[in-house]
């Protein structure tokens, strides 16, 4: 595979910009982030890119590659058609800082609005708890999340409708689900999910689940069970009847 490939990379900042072409040699096994680094080292030293672990574990290098939200470090060039330019753009759902780097600080603020973990009293005299692996499995799936925010990027409520002030997005429904389904947690976040975080805006198109690099079953395992809890707590006719009584 050792030959040249064309990369069409977004260059610019919040005031504007354009896609620019860079031709660079590519070798066997390279990922998109390698090509970006090569271009940065040889042709465009001030090209802005955010990355860390380069192993799909930290979720820093999120971008849109040929229009698909992906981690640059986990996208191998042999999965792409190199006869065409590879288009690399920043995530669209967040404000642009520069080139491939976006301002994702909103996500960190959103997390603070979700009630933190609150455990039940310890099970044993030494202050420890007992949990079975099968009770932990379900939550461990959610805790695989690397906070790459690709699910937030692809969610139309954020991407198209810009409801960042009213809606917390799939990442934080997964976070809330991890807390709600934690075997030790005793906090109740269901009312917040309904009224404050507007879980109802999600119409389960599963876009978020499809782009998750950790293959977390976001829609089916996190969001739908949370929606069921909301229905159970607030819209169950039988419970409503008893409440009236």
């Amino acid at each position: 595979m050792s030959n040249q490939a064309m990369f069409r990379i977004w260059r610019g900042d919040s005031s504007g910009g354009a896609l620019q072409d860079y031709k660079t040699p590519v070798d066997e096994g390279m990922v998109v982030l390698d090509a970006i680094h090569r271009i940065q080292a040889e042709q465009a030293p001030d090209l802005a890119v955010r990355w860390n672990c380069k192993a799909g574990k930290c979720g820093s290098c999120s971008a849109e590659i040929n229009g698909m939200p992906r981690l640059m470090c986990m996208t191998r060039l042999n999965q792409l058609n190199l006869d065409m330019p590879v288009i690399v753009e920043p995530m669209h759902a967040f404000p642009l800082i520069r080139d491939l780097v976006t301002d994702v600080s909103w996500n960190f603020e959103v997390k603070k609005t979700i009630k933190p973990f609150k455990p039940r009293s310890p099970d044993a005299a030494d202050g420890t708890w007992r949990m079975q692996q099968e009770d932990v499995d379900r939550v461990q799936e959610f805790r695989k999340c690397i906070e790459c925010f690709l699910c937030q990027d692809v969610c139309h409520v954020l991407r198209e409708h810009h409801k960042h002030d009213e809606f917390i997005g799939p990442r934080y429904f997964v976070y809330a689900a991890a807390l709600e389904m934690h075997p030790l947690d005793v906090e109740d976040r269901v009312k917040d999910l309904k009224d404050k975080h507007n879980l109802g805006y999600c119409n389960i198109t599963t876009c978020c689940r499809q782009v998750c690099p950790e293959s977390i079953t976001i829609t089916e395992n996190a969001i739908i069970p949370l929606k069921e809890r909301v229905v159970d707590q607030f819209f169950d006719p039988l419970k409503r009847f008893f409440r009236i009584l």
Partner: peptide, 18 residues
């Protein structure tokens, strides 16, 4: 390590739940 569990960490479990 036990303190992390009190803060929400979920380690893998033994058959007796530890």
């Amino acid at each position: 390590v036990r303190e992390l569990e009190a803060w929400g960490a979920l380690f893998d479990r033994t058959t007796d739940g530890k």
